[in-house]
Design a protein around this nucleic acid. Structure first.
Length: 907
DNA sequence: CGTATCACG
DNA sequence: ACGTACGTGATACGG
């Protein structure tokens, strides 16, 4: 035994092969190429090589291939293709696959190169006259199984799941191609409730619109599955048709009997096709490095080239990215050097960690003209010469993430004021859905390849480490600075093309410094009070916990939905209302329906509520209180959300509890920085509906806002056809409010029904009534979806853009989601624009008026300040004025203010 | 590291 | 026939 291990060390590969089972990889070539093509269709024009060839399908195919090889490590492989239009299926049914639009030339031109790729991979491909790729795959899968192989099939076509067996897995590509869903017989059963063998019975009943065979009229997946569960097969169903009660469905079944059997036959993948290949011929020895590298060069696949280079250390030095001649700074060189900037400079400040309020400053690069200066010692930046350079309002700085740099420099006592180009911000504005904050990754998205991602250089998780090798570290910093310089002109041009210059110059760029200042200011937390609240909550948690264990008759982990599910639904036999992917749902909605059936339910709800407050807001917040100033300094993420909103992290101060009294108490610990100061808060009232009234130009809704009406009551009055606001009951107002919210979210009858607990029919009626009353809103919803279709994106009032690539998807879910997003984003996004403008103006105003008041927080429609008592009166006039006048809409904006000794005491 | 849950607008 | 409200972040499990 020990001998074998020794042997294994000498020839690990050989031993592995002997121990491992034979594994055959079968790829449905046409289907995967097709999927790859459409998955990357959005970026079709970005995937063009130097000779003008489209390469997106090849690229996608390659991605899939790499992933599947890594995951499955096959010993044998084959890629099967369809041979042509004529097959035995068209002979049986002439319209088979009829009505298919012909393959786009952008795809068909890629197919010969796909063959080249496969050759470089050392993989055989095969096609067979009269048969489709499916049949080749089915046949070989069967033969391989009989020969003791394990088989993995990759395809974009769900029909192939009929081939799943205990030894054959069918991997169906997901929306992209890099991810797959693995169909084992168990998974098929779980998903459809039938066996793989029954898939063909289902296809017989349902038909297939893409292959253009009809099945039985009016029978869809749901009905088919029900019938199959009852009868088992198409044959059995028809033998026992008389068991069915007379119905339309039965008539259809009778009428379409022949079609059903024909369709089943068409759907059945042949496993005895005359495939003239021996399994031994499919043995896969791995890719041909040289061929593959030259193929990638031909295709301009830089990322795959890099990946190969990384795998082959021998090639590494030649393939390493651009080298920089840099000067390492120290006191002496600084004294000697001339830092007079002719034009602007580029600057990058590196920190070890994401939280720039505390992360160690580990290095910087400063670019003047063609000179690169670097150092690990960031204190050098405090040298008068460098400090003056960075703080000089006339020296424009190009950088990546101005806010982060601003805060980092502030920690060194340096005030950065003049930012010109912020790569992170511009990149975000160009596409709000690309929200990576890694310079390397973003640069690559914009086609600049000569910079690595931080993850590549520094590693991640436990392995994260700033390299000790100067060449690597400084080289990386220089390449980042170079990426900023190189991308400046092209990205600013794109910004201009999109008419987003003003959005950048007047809104996001100044805002980044306003946010930086707010973060630096921080908000003070009364730690003693928070700790005291913590011990009170702890005691209550203990009490409730004991009661729950009593009622359950045992102790268990209350925080585990899994264990809780077992107690509630198995031990106590409460009815199962909803299931999740992994088991029983125990979410609030579910528990609320179980209320009254067992006292344990109320206690669980209570426990959840308090445990949440304790873990997230007491213990969570305590971790962030700075011992230096007793404050918490959140970070606002300015380049994350697809709509243009901010988000807040470490800690998140945008979701401090307010709805329930126990949670709201947390707000008592947020206090002003000094005695004799107060917390002051102003919020926009119904800003999103006002924005909707503006962009839809709906007269009725505008009238309501102009009259200063209670908008939800007004809506209720009109929906329910009442004459006076006094007739509106609280319940009517509640329902109308939900409808208003639903409208803002891009309404669906299902969503509304679920939200207010009415039937879908009732919800639908509500919506229809709503659109009658507010025809302008209806028009807007139609218009914006059309526009998203035509242009591929939607815009906010200030031209913030969100692309919606799925708006044309054939997948109902994806398409519907995009449609709702198209309706919602201009509303939510414009509201976000407006408060951003207000923040910039407010910060200016505070300075101008020489107020001591400090802007501390933004919570989407609310601004929170702290100020000396004697400034409160002025703020009460000033803040609403500035917020009101941030923009001029067709309806007035409304701002409400309040103040008090803690955040709790505002409103 | 993905999932469930729950906090906010 | 399908299966959805829009946008976020933190915490706790459990593989």
């Amino acid at each position: 035994m020990f001998g074998r291990i020794k042997q294994g060390r000498q020839s690990l590969k050989g031993v592995r092969k002997m121990n491992n089972k034979k594994k055959l990889l079968l790829i449905d070539g046409n289907s995967v190429a097709f999927r790859a093509f459409f998955a990357l269709h959005q970026s079709l024009e970005r995937f063009v090589n130097h000779s003008g060839l489209h390469t997106n399908a090849i690229y996608g195919f390659n991605t899939m291939l790499d992933n599947i090889i890594e995951k499955t490590a096959p010993t044998h492989a084959l890629v099967a293709f369809d041979a042509g239009k004529q097959t035995f299926r068209t002979a049986k049914f002439s319209d088979y696959k009829g009505g298919r639009s012909k393959t786009p030339t952008e795809l068909s031109e890629q197919l010969p190169y796909l063959q080249k790729l496969l050759t470089a991979y050392g993989m055989k491909s095969y096609e067979l006259k009269e048969y489709e790729a499916d049949d080749i795959i089915g046949t070989l899968a069967k033969r391989a199984e009989e020969d003791g192989f394990e088989v993995v099939i990759v395809t974009g076509d769900r029909d192939l799941t009929q081939l799943a067996t205990p030894k054959t897995t069918v991997a169906v590509t997901q929306k992209g191609v890099s991810e797959v869903e693995n169909y084992t017989p168990e998974h098929v059963l779980e998903k459809y409730g039938i066996t793989p063998a029954q898939i063909v019975d289902m296809k017989g009943l349902v038909g297939d619109s893409s292959d253009n065979y009809p099945g039985v009229a009016k029978v869809g997946e749901k009905t088919a599955l029900k019938l199959l569960k009852q009868f088992g097969s198409l044959e059995a169903l028809y033998e026992n048709l008389d068991q069915l009660k007379p119905s339309k469905m039965k008539e259809h079944l009778e009428e379409d009997r022949e079609t059903a059997f024909l369709c089943k036959d068409l759907a059945r993948i042949r496993q005895n096709a005359p495939v003239s290949l021996e399994l031994a011929e499919l043995a896969w020895a791995g890719e041909n490095d040289e061929q593959l590298t030259s193929f990638y060069e031909e295709m301009d696949f830089k990322s795959f080239l890099r990946k190969r280079a990384a795998k082959n250390p021998a090639e590494q030095p030649e393939r390493s990215i651009k080298k920089f001649a840099y000067t390492v700074l120290d006191e002496q060189t600084i004294t000697k050097s001339n830092f007079q900037a002719q034009q602007g400079i580029s600057f990058y400040l590196e920190m070890s960690g994401a939280n720039y309020h505390q992360a160690p400053l580990v290095g910087f690069v400063l670019v003047l003209g063609a000179q690169y200066f670097v150092s690990r010692d960031c204190k050098l930046l405090q040298h008068p010469k460098l400090r003056q350079l960075l703080a000089d309002p006339k020296v424009k700085v190009d950088l990546f993430d101005g806010k982060r740099t601003f805060v980092g420099l502030a920690r060194l006592g340096i005030n950065l004021t003049a930012i010109d180009f912020d790569l992170l911000l511009v990149s975000y504005l160009l596409n709000t859905s690309e929200n990576s904050n890694d310079l390397g990754k973003l640069a690559q998205l914009h086609g600049y390849e000569d910079v690595r991602s931080d993850e590549e250089i520094y590693g991640k998780g436990a392995k994260y480490q700033i390299p000790t090798d100067d060449k690597i570290f400084f080289g990386h910093l220089c390449s980042k600075a170079h990426a900023i310089t190189t991308l400046k002109a092209p990205l600013l041009l794109k910004l201009k093309e999109n008419q987003q210059e003003e959005l950048y110059l007047k809104m996001e760029r100044p805002l980044s410094l306003v946010l930086g200042a707010m973060e630096l200011a921080g908000i003070k937390v009364d730690q003693a009070r928070l700790e005291q609240m913590g011990s009170e909550f702890k005691e209550r948690i203990k009490e409730v916990e004991l009661e729950i264990y009593n009622e359950a008759g045992e102790e268990f982990n209350l925080n585990s939905p899994k264990q809780l599910g077992v107690i509630l639904f198995e031990k106590l036999k409460l009815p199962v209302i909803k299931k999740t992917k992994t088991g029983y749902s125990t979410a609030v909605g579910v528990l609320e329906q179980l209320r009254g059936m067992a006292p344990i339910v109320d206690n669980i709800l209570k426990y959840r509520q308090i445990a949440k407050i304790q873990s997230t807001y007491v213990e969570g917040l305590l971790k962030y209180i700075s011992p230096k100033d007793s404050k918490v300094h959140t970070r606002y993420t300015q380049t994350l959300t697809a709509t243009g909103r901010l988000s807040s992290v470490d800690p998140n101060l945008q979701n401090i509890p307010i709805r329930l009294p126990e949670g709201k108490k947390i707000r008592q610990v947020f206090v002003p920085r000094k005695a004799g100061w107060e917390i002051f808060s102003s919020d926009y009232s119904q800003i999103e509906l006002r924005v909707l009234a503006h962009i839809s130009h709906d007269e009725n809704m505008q009238t309501a806002f102009k009259a200063g009406a209670d908008i939800h009551a007004n809506t209720a009055m009109q929906i329910f056809g009442l004459d006076a606001p006094t007739q509106v009951t609280p319940n009517m107002r509640r329902q109308a409010k939900a409808v208003n919210f639903g409208i803002v979210y891009g309404i669906s009858d299902y969503g509304l029904a679920q939200n207010i607990g009415i039937t879908r029919k009732q919800a639908k009626a509500f919506i229809e009534r709503y659109f009658e009353i507010f025809p302008g809103v209806h028009e807007y919803m139609k218009r914006i979806v059309e526009q998203a279709h035509a242009k591929g994106y939607v815009e906010t009032l200030f031209k913030r853009r969100r692309y919606l690539p799925d708006i044309k998807s054939k997948n109902y879910n994806l398409r519907s989601f995009s449609e709702r997003t198209a309706m919602n984003t201009p509303i939510q996004g414009s509201a976000a624009d407006i408060i951003k403008v207000a923040m910039i103006n407010m910060q200016k105003m505070l300075q101008q008026e020489k107020l001591q008041a400090v802007m501390l927080l933004q919570v989407h429609d609310e601004l929170i300040f702290e100020a000396p008592d004697d400034e409160i009166e002025r703020l009460e006039k000033l803040v609403p004025q500035v917020m009101d006048q941030a923009v001029s809409l067709e309806v007035p904006l409304k701002v409400e203010s309040s103040h008090g000794s803690t955040w709790f005491d505002t409103k």
